[in-house]
Amino acid sequence: MSTIFLYNFSGLALFAIGLHGLIRSSHLLRKILAANLMSSGIFLIMIVGAYGPDQALIDPVPHAMVLTGILVSISTTAVALVLVCLVQETTNRALLLQKRKREQRGRTDA
């Protein structure tokens, strides 16, 4: 049972790495990857919480929640990726970092 408990910490680590990546990375695609990492980490912790040695003891509710979560994350990722392409296409840069320099130059959009 103790080794199963390890997955808690790997879930936590994934969440932390995802959070750090989401905030720190400059490329939008990498931010979306990091977001997916975060949700995987959370799902890991949820499923470990539901673990039971044999079939009867397993709690199915977190499994249902994780399934819903996976579908939610793929739909958000799909919209995010389309938006990244649009942002790249019209404002010509995928890095949020560069946007602040552009704004300091005071380009006003209507």
């Binding site: 995802g18 959070l19 989401l22 939008l28 939610v72 995010a80 938006l83 404002t91």
Partner: peptide, 21 residues
Amino acid sequence: GKPAARLAAMRYLLVSLLGSC
């Protein structure tokens, strides 16, 4: 469809993702 709106939507989506997580 304006570039500024798309950029704002992108940032909004990332924040909303972080919030939901």
